[in-house]
């Protein structure tokens, strides 16, 4: 219900702002681009297909786009397949037949939407992929370099634990769902780094299905098995909170060096502050959301019949530790909605 009210409220605000914007232009100032810019935005239809709007990063994207839509006067629709790939495909197929000006797709994995994205492009519907890129190229992609993030983390572990640097070289990795792209790209980076550093020993490489409680039971077994573990490699903070809990239970906080990555939501910063994560690569959704809005702005300004060369924006990440943490390192959904 609340969401419905939000949407209605949002629409009302959009209308209000749109009106004022129009008035402002009438009386306002045209610097030679601004009028053209506003006109290219106004009345356009953008449809967003998230993985699930309940997912923090998808909610972040949606909030950012909504703010933009409200201010520039284009229409934003959200079709939420709620983790169901089949419904996602269904939604995109349906959207293609509606011919909107732009579809923003948050890919579930590299495969699932590849075909329909291609179909959309062939049907002349522009597609902006976000977060994870499908195997097929589209108008644009705004995303995260999963390989680089994981590589950064793995290298950090090497730096901390390598016998060359005085460690014992024993580390463990905790995977999510093996087939998930962030997982296998990340694990590829991890394995590549480990191959380059034969002095490291990977004592355990288990999957926990992105489930914190499974992560907890796996990690508590592993750390009891190898009490002298030097570091633990994590791929997503949502799962790694279970890992951190298990390590704390075993009394090894501070002894096992935990690297993790995530969207940098406020809970992550709390965990960095309390020492759960020793090193954290943050792909800040606030920033990613801004990139998405930039890409939307670029695409909407181009004429609909123009063939755009695919372009991409990859996010610059932040490496967070207890010491580098600032009050603005993390974000909350409310902040994005309010436009910080």
């Amino acid at each position: 219900m609340r969401k419905l009210i939000n949407i209605i409220g949002g629409a009302a605000i959009a209308l209000g702002i749109g009106m004022t914007a129009v008035k402002a232009q009438d009386a306002g100032f045209d610097d030679g681009m601004s009028t053209k810019f506003y006109e290219s935005m106004k009345g356009k239809k953008v449809v967003f297909v998230p993985i699930s709007i309940g997912m923090d990063i998808a909610a972040g994207f949606a909030a950012g786009m909504q703010r933009m839509a409200d201010q520039y006067g284009f229409q934003l629709q959200i079709r939420d397949p709620n983790w169901n790939v089949d419904q996602g495909v269904q939604a995109i197929t349906q959207i293609i037949s509606e011919k909107p000006d732009l579809v923003v797709i948050q890919n579930v994995d590299m495969q699932a939407y590849a075909r329909v994205i291609k179909q959309a492009m062939e049907a002349g519907v522009r597609v902006l992929q976000v977060n994870v890129k499908a195997t097929s190229n589209s108008t644009a992609h705004v995303g995260i370099d999963w390989y680089k993030n994981a590589e950064t983390n793995a290298l950090k572990l090497v730096e901390k634990c390598s016998p060359k640097n005085g460690g014992n070289g024993k580390i463990a990795a905790l995977e999510g769902t093996p087939n998930n792209p962030t997982n296998f790209i990340g694990m590829k980076a991890f394995n590549d780094v480990m191959a380059a550093h034969p002095e490291m020993t990977v004592v355990s490489d288990q999957a926990a299905d992105w489930d914190a409680s499974k992560a907890h039971s796996v990690v508590s077994t592993v750390v009891r098995q190898s009490p002298d573990l030097c570091g633990y490699f994590g791929l997503w903070d949502g799962q790694d909170s279970g890992m951190a809990a298990a390590i704390r239970e075993a009394g090894l906080t501070g002894k096992v060096f935990v690297v993790s990555q995530g969207a940098g939501e406020k809970a992550a910063c709390e965990k960095i502050a309390d020492g759960s994560y020793d090193f954290y690569v943050s792909y800040n959704i606030r920033e990613l959301s801004k990139h998405i809005n930039d890409a939307i702005a670029v695409i909407l300004q181009r004429p609909a019949d123009e063939t755009l060369q695919p372009f991409a924006i990859y996010l610059t990440t932040q490496n967070l530790t207890k010491d580098t943490l600032t009050p603005s390192s993390c974000w909350t959904l409310d902040e994005i909605k309010r436009g910080y």
Partner: peptide, 14 residues
């Protein structure tokens, strides 16, 4: 044939 995709979530909950 339709999707040409070996996604990990195929058939989940079907």
């Amino acid at each position: 044939a339709r999707l040409n995709s070996a996604g990990s979530e195929t058939g989940a909950g079907l």
